[in-house]
Amino acid sequence: MSTAPAVQHAHEREKQEPILEVRGLTIGWGDVVLQRDLTFHVRRGEVFAILGRSGSGKSTMVRFLVGLETPIAGDVRIAGQDPAVMAAGLPPFGVMFQGGALFGSMTVGENVALPLHEHTDLPPNAAAAIARAKLALVGLEGAFDKLPSELSGGMKKRAAIARALALDPELVFLDEPSAGLDPITAAGIDDLIKTLNRSLGVTCVVVTHELDSIFAIADRCIVLDDQGRGIVAEGDPMSLRQSTDPLVRDFFTRRSRST
């Protein structure tokens, strides 16, 4: 594994160094620019929320942050490395996609064990044991032998979080972890994220538009402009609530209809 020494090296660095650094990032394809000139960083151990209205390119931005897409300009560093060149190695981060993106042809247990099988020499029963433990961590002990199609929306998201955590990454990206869930299930996911962050020390980058989640979990957040002009505000949720920027105020004061 060619990236392993680099990851270790990153571990030895100072804790204060940001785990995710984004400089002058412009995202989009060809002539279509979604957001321009994004500059921010995420510190180790925090829960960082990316906010914005629907269509502002939050989820797309995650695809650029993890190296799935090539940015128009600017660069991204995760633990000091360009995520795009990590493609074939073991990435030091996990991703939970909006719809879960669990492999439909494998059981939930196999889904979680897959990264372990592919990136370690663990015997199958040991990988399965780890997968079971990860599933227990997200409250899905009983789902090991189920197929993703047998899970509810909330369970799929939990299983996807378990898979993202399979290799104990320092950083996980969570795309809309509580969107489309009922308020109680959504709060359960928020609790889970908080627990992972507090007890495992996992840095979380969360894309969301749920106000309840933001106040429940986020240490810091950025708000994306809905016209693609980049970041309109940055800070902790409480201070953003007092913001004078009309877009930010709108976002924070219009309570969601569910509450």
Binding site: V66, M86, A87, A88, A101, G104, E118
Partner: peptide, 21 residues
């Protein structure tokens, strides 16, 4: 059909983020 379905449901991207080309 299999690969297209995986593509459409982000499974291909999930593979990539796990470092599996």
């Amino acid at each position: 059909a299999e690969i297209a379905t995986m593509k459409v449901s982000d499974e291909i991207d999930a593979l990539r983020t796990m470092g599996l080309p």
